[in-house]
């Protein structure tokens, strides 16, 4: 049961592997970025998960509540999300430029073009 109770972590592992696989296996540069995003998202989920305290509530001071979730990981992950967005934006911008320069966003075709020159 313990293993099932930790299902959040199963999701984390699944997302991580899925994202990683996409980055490695796909030739399409945009899809790689998507994979990278999924990979990062899995980490976000991980952080949020271990910020949760059993029986705790949102960390806003209220009467009659003694247990709060840990707010720090949430804050951290806000930063990480910002970084992730910046990375994605930059990555996509690069893809646009690559498309202008090569006329394609397929990795193997780009390699072919580079080998020719």
């Amino acid at each position: 049961m313990a293993a099932v109770g930790l299902y959040n972590y199963w999701i984390v592992v699944f997302l991580m592997m899925a994202g990683f696989y996409i980055v490695i296996a796909h030739d399409n540069l945009v899809k790689k970025i998507v994979g990278l995003n999924i990979f990062q998202a899995s980490v976000f989920v991980m952080y949020i998960t271990f910020g949760k305290v059993q029986g705790g509530t949102a960390p806003i001071i209220a009467d009659g509540v003694t247990t709060y979730s840990n707010p720090l990981p949430h804050v951290l992950i806000l930063t990480a999300i910002v970084v992730g967005v910046a990375t994605t934006a930059l990555g996509l911008a690069l893809v646009v430029r690559i498309n202008e320069a090569y006329g394609t966003i397929e990795e193997d075709e780009i390699h072919d073009q580079d080998d020719d020159t």
Binding site: L29, G91, L94, V95, R97, I98, A101, Y102, I110, D114
Partner: peptide, 8 residues
């Protein structure tokens, strides 16, 4: 132009 792919 290979700078772009290198950067990517």
């Amino acid at each position: 132009r290979r700078a772009l792919t290198a950067s990517y």
